[in-house]
Write a protein that binds this DNA or RNA. Structure first.
Lengths: 213, 213
DNA sequence: CGGACCGTTGACACTTATCAAACGCGGTGG
DNA sequence: CCACCGCGTTTGATAAGTGTCAACGGTCCG
């Protein structure tokens, strides 16, 4: 996550590095959220930075036309809730039972500095996602999504999706029907196997990568 | 651009704040680029942060299928080229004659801290753009684009686009034909007037905003 | 005058959204 | 134990939107 440029000795203090890597510096204890419970909501004041301890989080915005766009999923170790402006413009919800550790930004404003790598990481993810969403067909988006989830699950060939179809659809800018059809296509080509609604098994890694042009 | 959280006294040093607001702290003199000239390219080492002095910049990536996606446009005052990892994953090019000031990140790595607001700003823009691109129709995307350009031109009703149609298309995830058709639709509804290929005049601001759901 | 470049317009094909229905599964209650 | 219901997913038919291919028009410049 950290880059050569952001390596030790760059002005980022050691305790913050530790915090970033999972230390418990100045943080509240982990609090638990149930499925669908909101961690922060659009319009609320920004005052905390959050880190997923276990489970998963979706960050989304609802447009005036009623459509929901999931901007990002966050999993164990990911920081989120970092933004400029004093009010949240998005909503963060737990997916399943989720543990969140938060740190207060007001009390300790210089902590922002330590969070720079996390912000850069989020920024990078947003750009990657933008590419997938804008210039790929439905099947290609789903393929990219599966690879992303596989990677986040430790590059495992077999894994369970945290989220239902509607979340996948709202993340990829598709409808649930199109997501479902795309999965079926990949299944029929023998590239993946589906184990129930959430279970994914990648049979042909190469073929999947080939789709993600 | 700066938020309450990032106001003075937050640990960001005064010289860096000055730098961000346009001061000339530790920066090289402005260098000039001609239309289409690259400022950095995908694969190059990350070593500088850049700031647009005049003109405009497009940051894009080319996918394996040959399609180009413009991730962001940057105008006077905007910082760009900030990312994690040690190699650029995108290419930045001047649009028209453009002045760029750069600062060396290696020599002065703690400067990253002062750039945090700029990174947050870029992150925020990327997310906004993601929403426009994923959940809006062609006309709505073009409408949002015109409002964005109007805002960047100081909320002026009449302005000139910096970039040709192909850039607009690659920014919005559309084809030049669809962009052209969308502009024609807006023109026919009396919402905008077109003054040559680059000139835009917004006749009904409200109607345009109404399209951006 | 001719050509190159950019933008517009038109015809058509293809992808995906929409609307609708069926399926599978877990839970509840008779 | 089994029928029933609710929910999420899948599948099907159709329509709308956008991409593709092609032609045309305008401007700039040699």
């Amino acid at each position: 996550m950290l880059t050569s440029i952001l390596a030790p000795g760059t002005g980022i203090s050691a305790p913050l590095m530790e915090l970033l890597s999972g230390g418990e510096v100045e943080s509240k204890p982990t609090s638990s959220f149930v499925d669908g419970q909101s961690i922060y909501s659009s319009g609320e004041r920004v005052g905390q930075a959050y880190r997923v301890e276990f489970g998963a989080v979706r960050v989304y915005r609802v447009l005036a036309n009623g459509r929901r766009q999931i901007l990002a999923f966050h999993f164990g170790g990911n920081w989120f809730g970092l933004q400029n402006g004093d009010r949240h413009r998005s909503t963060a919800e737990a997916i399943g039972v989720t543990g969140i550790r938060s740190i207060n930004l007001q009390k300790d404003p210089h902590i922002w500095q330590g969070l720079l790598p996390a912000v850069l990481e989020n920024f990078s993810s947003a750009q990657e996602h933008q590419l997938v969403i804008c210039r790929q067909s439905a099947v290609e988006r789903v393929a990219a999504f599966l690879l992303e989830m596989s990677e986040r699950a430790g590059n495992s060939q077999r894994f369970e999706l945290f989220m239902p179809r509607v979340d996948v659809a709202d993340y990829l800018g598709l409808t649930i029907e199109t997501v479902s059809r795309s999965l079926t296509k990949l299944k029929n080509k023998g590239i993946i196997k589906l184990h129930g609604p959430r279970g994914i098994e990648i049979m042909q890694y190469r073929a999947l990568q080939g789709l993600c042009l």
